[in-house]
């Protein structure tokens, strides 16, 4: 199928060369600009169709997998201001973003610090290696012990989970900053704090961002797990409670909301990344 489409594209382009004054052809041409979205929509439509098809033919048991239209209706009803999902979104989003923000600040600061001092890195290496590879689930009881079963422990768990990718990518990004840029700043009279904030950080940002995006997804994974542990409100507990009450469409609606939050955060982060790394256009293959 892909072959057919590229063939068509080639034909359209060839026709354009011959007949630049054509009327209907430029509109196809202008559509080609949005090919990424068009193909994406096609893929999405195909996925929903499969979902619906599997349901209506009974290949998958509708009791376990609700049909897409039912899930969508439950979702819409749920996220209306008086719906039952709406009040669950904000506690989760709040915890997730708070934990993520803490991880962002500590991860970048700590990463710049550890990445800048080789000795410090050597001293800390074994400890860091131990903790970064430790399962977050194993640490849950520890967090409960320290922070109780309230909000703090959940935020701490999210912060812990998203700290590591940010910290690790920052450490290596800082080590990758060209020495000559730091030397240039020093000869201009800059002291350490200025160099960290105005040379090391901007030079490292493009390589920190993959870690930040990974951290955002870790944050919400950890959040749901933390909410399963015990919470009175939040999407994690909503999904689990729906399943226990056997309100399966609600369960899927909750999962869908969580997934959409993930997509939205990723879009926001990609936008921010493009803004702060715009200067790299033309230097790298971005």
């Amino acid at each position: 199928m892909a072959n057919d489409i590229s063939l068509q594209t080639a034909t359209v382009k060839a026709m354009l060369v011959r007949d630049a004054g054509g009327k209907s052809i430029p509109s196809i041409q202008s559509l080609l600009k949005y090919d990424k979205y068009i193909y994406g929509l096609l893929g999405l439509a195909f996925f929903v169709f499969l979902w619906w098809f599997a349901n209506s033919t009974g290949v998958l048991n509708p009791k376990f997998l609700s049909p897409p239209q039912t899930v969508l209706m439950t979702l819409i009803a749920g996220v209306l201001p008086d719906g039952d999902i709406w009040p669950e979104i904000w506690p989760s989003l709040g915890r997730g973003l708070e934990g993520f923000a803490i991880a962002l600040a500590l991860g970048i600061l700590g990463g710049i610090f550890v990445g800048s001092f080789t000795l410090l890195e050597k001293v800390l290496a074994p400890i860091l290696l131990f903790f970064r590879n430790l399962s977050i689930l194993a640490l849950f009881p520890v967090f409960l012990l320290f922070f109780g079963i309230g909000e703090e422990s959940k935020i701490a768990i999210v912060a812990w989970a998203s700290f590591w990718p940010i910290f690790i990518s920052t450490t290596s990004a800082v080590k990758g900053v060209e020495r000559i840029l730091i030397n240039a700043a020093r000869t201009l009279g800059a002291e350490r704090p200025y160099i960290f904030a105005h040379v090391v950080l901007p030079a490292a940002v493009p390589n920190i961002f993959p870690g930040i995006r990974l951290a955002a997804s870790y944050a919400f994974t950890a959040l749901v797990a933390a909410e399963y542990l015990g919470a009175t409100e939040g999407l994690g507990i909503y999904i689990r409670a729906s399943q226990e009450r056997f309100e399966i469409p609600s369960m899927y609606a909750g999962i869908l909301v969580l997934g959409l939050i993930g997509v939205a955060i990723n879009l926001v982060l990609t936008g921010v990344e493009q803004r702060v790394t715009r200067w790299q256009l033309g230097i790298t293959s971005r």
Partner: peptide, 30 residues
């Protein structure tokens, strides 16, 4: 580092994320 010495490197060592104007302003900003 003496603040009365200016240095020019073979590899330019300009800050790639700053405009020409901001690069030249860097020493003054510091």
């Amino acid at each position: 580092v003496s603040k009365t010495v200016g240095v020019v490197f073979q590899s330019y060592a300009l800050f790639p994320w700053l405009s020409v104007q901001k690069n030249v302003e860097a020493g003054l900003r510091i």
